[in-house]
Write a protein that binds this DNA or RNA. Structure first.
Lengths: 198, 198
DNA sequence: TGTACATCAGTGAACGCGCGTTCACTGATGTAC
DNA sequence: TGTACATCAGTGAACGCGCGTTCACTGATGTAC
């Protein structure tokens, strides 16, 4: 790699790091390009040598985040022996997202934004920017003996998870991670296992 | 009331109605004042005779919506005889919000926005712009015999509810109202009743 | 009932501001010979 | 190794646009006498 390329890549990384920090702190709309570049020690114009627009950088960061979450997930738990283990694996994973405080908020905001944008909405529903549905179905699916559709169990689990993210973002402090995990497990058991069925 | 006052009030109502429709369709940021006034058949400047800012109108609309939800709620179910009835009453109420499609989305967005604003966050946590927590605690509280904190049951129920709103807004269609209601009941039972406790 | 003046509702052009994006430019690095 | 030129990274002033807000103005309504 030439000296120029090295310099360019270095700059790109510095700008990206500043953007990750600022987007996380203040959100997409509230973070300006001038803030990103000046906080990294560059001029406003330098941004456009590296990305075509602010939105492009944001999407790239989101994709990178998801990729790293996914890698973390796939490296873990290869298979679970029963429902409790499957749910444990899922929530170990979800907790890493919960712990990435700033960014779980951004993901929620992004999800809400996608709500109004057809292309993004499809991307989310197909899992491109979403972590969940197929995972739940495949991990939990084989441990369902009640006949209840696994994708519904997955969707309910996601609902509980995302609802908890809202709760956390508001900082009410009534619930903690253990509470939701436990609740999610109870819910999955009630729906998935014959012995708990109504 | 004088002729002038009548005219003014009429205009105010027409602007408000246009705003409710447009905010609901497109959200707060994406709706401009020019759109509101021209869609109601007035000029841009007329807006400021009725409200100080776009934000003020938005908050007023939200407050009105919540007030009407609350009135509807309070008119209904005076008391429940057991947990199932209490949950039934709560979800009858929540379903009216779910059915107000556009606005349940707006409430979510508003909630997410409040996340970044201290004053709003406090207002939400104190229930000013939120529907839920004390209601659940008071309605469900007396039917908990497991010792599990009623406010946690309420918060988990809210999480499931708001997570479902996200799910609906994305239009995946995996879950319907009946699914969540049922799930919420299962969850509440598991947590509130001794016989279902682990 | 009429007149003079004040107040009000609504108009629409103009202002101001933030901010994303562009662009002509500079100095450093790379390339051809 | 040196020279001439091309290409690149980064600069920062300027542009453009949308949009919330202001303001001088008009015509209608209200008030005082």
């Amino acid at each position: 790699m030439s000296k120029q390329q090295e310099k360019s890549q270095q700059t790109r990384h510095e700008l990206e790091a500043a953007a990750i920090r600022l987007f996380g702190q203040k959100g997409f709309l509230e973070t300006s390009i001038a803030e990103i570049t000046s906080s990294a020690g560059y001029s406003k114009g330098s941004f456009y040598r590296h990305w075509e627009s602010k939105g492009e950088l944001f999407l790239q960061i989101i994709e990178d985040k998801l990729k790293s979450y996914r890698e973390q997930r796939d490296g873990q738990h290869p298979k679970a022996r029963d429902l409790d283990e499957a749910m444990g694996a899922i929530w170990d994973f979800l907790e890493t997202i919960i712990d990435d405080n700033d960014w779980s908020r951004i993901f929620l905001e992004f999800t809400m934004h996608a709500t109004r944008n057809k292309a993004l909405r499809q991307a989310l529903n197909q899992g491109a920017y979403r972590l969940s549905n197929e995972l739940f179905a495949s991990l939990v699916g084989e441990h369902v003996d009640s006949g209840y559709p696994p994708e519904k169990i997955g969707a309910l689990n996601t609902a509980l998870f995302e609802g908890f993210l809202i709760h956390s973002a508001l900082g009410t402090g009534v619930l903690n991670k253990t509470d939701v995990r436990r609740a999610a497990l109870l819910l999955a058991r009630s729906n998935a296992l014959k012995s708990n069925a109504e």
